[in-house]
Design a protein around this nucleic acid. Structure first.
Length: 260
DNA sequence: ATGACGGTGTGGCACCGA
């Protein structure tokens, strides 16, 4: 089976591209971020017509996450339990699979703008809350995948200019420590389980020919629990949608899980 | 580089993203 994540930067604009991508890449679960729409505007019918179930958690203008799955999900959780948040950034649900229930956590992590801003402080408190919740979630759901737009480069390999961007947003030590803390809960970066090309990124700035010059960052991740890691077959970044007209600035990341 | 590009809103620029 395949699971994927994609920050679409407005589902209204990108819906045709998402449907086309799903048609060419029939994954079992697709985590979407930055819907930028309220749930009453969510295109449930379009996904249903394409053979998919959708579970959405949107808001006006900003943020918003959704889970697109072949099979119906259960035990849906919106945002981090116990963490009051006006922004719609997390949706989790359990997907039945032949190997047992798969817990999927879809996150649109806080951007944080710049160190020493209120938004950065919010990023750090949000990351702490996520970590504390996931610690419990992993005990309840040992087959757990955390997918989404993390807005953190795990290390210097994940940035087109690690020296020039040293300790700037997405590159700070404290952000990387938070990502490390998630991994230390017993999670694994699916992409790094395999040999990958240098300068592999999942986001490129719209400005200044960022994609053409491969000036990008790897900030979209699929993290797998120990149990899921043992069944991981492959993990790739699909750059094809970034070549579309009116592309999202992010591109999908896909992991394939198999039975041993 | 206080820039670029792209999306949203009740807009004619401001805010946000990364």
């Amino acid at each position: 089976m395949k699971i994927a994540t994609w920050n679409v930067n407005s589902l209204s604009v990108r819906l045709p591209q998402v449907l086309a991508w799903l048609s060419a890449n029939p994954v079992d679960a697709l985590c979407l971020q930055e819907l930028k729409m309220t749930d009453d505007k969510f295109p449930f019918d379009a996904f249903q017509a394409a053979g998919y179930q959708a579970t959405a958690f949107g808001q006006k203008t900003y943020n918003g996450v959704a889970l697109i799955t072949r099979e119906p999900v259960d035990s849906v959780v919106r945002n981090i339990p116990g963490f009051a948040d006006e922004q719609s950034r997390v949706i989790a649900a359990t997907l039945p699979t032949p190997d047992g229930p798969l817990r999927i956590v879809n996150g649109y992590f806080v951007n944080g703008q710049a160190p020493d801003t209120d938004k950065f402080a919010y990023k750090l408190t949000w990351l702490t809350a996520l970590q504390n919740w996931l610690r419990d979630e992993l005990i309840i759901h040992p087959r757990l995948a955390l997918l989404g737009d993390f807005n953190i480069t795990a290390d210097d390999r994940d940035s087109y200019d690690p020296q020039g961007l040293h300790e700037t947003i997405h590159h700070t030590t404290v952000e990387r420590e938070h990502l490390r803390a998630l991994l230390d809960l017993g999670m694994h970066d699916a992409f790094r389980q395999f040999e990958q090309a240098e300068k592999s990124f999942s986001w490129w700035d719209y400005r200044d020919f960022g994609f053409r010059r491969n000036r990008g960052l790897r900030i979209d991740y699929i993290l797998l629990s120990d149990l899921l890691k043992s069944s991981l077959k492959n993990c790739v970044i699909d750059k094809a949608p970034r070549k579309n007209e009116r592309p999202s600035d992010h591109t999908p990341v896909v992991a394939e899980l198999g039975t041993d």
